[in-house]
Computed example of a mutant assay.
Amino acid sequence: MSRRPLGQLEAEVLAALAGLGGNASTAELVARLDGDPAYTTVNTILHRLHEKKLVSRVRAGRHYRYRLAVDESELVAGRMREHLRHASDPGTVLNRFARSLSAEEARELREFLDRPEGDR
């Protein structure tokens, strides 16, 4: 059974969790997210992410603390590959993506691509 791609809020919660060192409570994540999502909404998202085995959790009193159970970079790269797979013209998508990068991001990408394939 294949998994659906992550929803936008799920992706934002995972990014916020990574930004907090990969270990946070629901309340800490709510404070970190844009748009002032409800505590119960974030809690539901965390429950779903736990069911998908993308986060683990440990009891901390009456609440849980959540930890990333996956590598964030692999997760985001997978989402990017999925978008490219569904594009009618992946080359144009990559072109627009590359043009949207900051100078620093473009430099990092160039350095990575210039490395021998075995060193990537």
Rank of each mutant, 00 (worst) to 15 (best):
V58H: 08
V58A: 09
R59H: 11
A60Y: 13
A60I: 13
A60L: 14
G61K: 00
G61M: 01
R62M: 12
R62A: 13
H63R: 12
H63A: 12
H63K: 12
H63W: 10
Y64R: 00
Y64D: 01
Y64V: 00
Y64N: 02
R65K: 05
R65N: 06
Y66Q: 00
Y66W: 13
Y66P: 02
Y66D: 04
Y66M: 02
Y66F: 07
R67E: 07
L68G: 01
L68Y: 02
L68H: 00
L68V: 02
A69W: 02
A69L: 01
V70I: 07
D71V: 14
D71H: 07
E72L: 13
E72I: 15
S73F: 08
S73G: 04
S73Q: 06
S73H: 08
E74G: 10
E74S: 11
E74N: 08
L75C: 03
L75M: 03
L75P: 06
V76G: 02
A77V: 15
A77S: 10
A77L: 15
A77T: 13
G78Q: 08
G78L: 06
G78V: 06
G78M: 09
R79F: 12
R79E: 15
R79H: 09
R79K: 10
R79Y: 15
M80S: 02
M80A: 08
E82L: 11
E82D: 15
H83T: 15
H83Y: 12
H83F: 15
L84C: 04
L84H: 05
L84W: 06
L84G: 01
L84V: 04
R85Q: 09
R85P: 06
H86R: 14
H86T: 14
H86A: 13
A87F: 01
A87Y: 04
S88C: 10
P90N: 04
P90A: 02
P90R: 01
G91H: 08
G91V: 05
G91E: 05
G91R: 12
G91F: 11
T92D: 07
T92W: 14
T92S: 11
T92N: 11
T92P: 00
T92I: 12
V93P: 00
V93R: 02
V93M: 03
V93I: 08
L94A: 05
L94H: 02
L94G: 03
N95M: 14
N95H: 15
N95A: 13
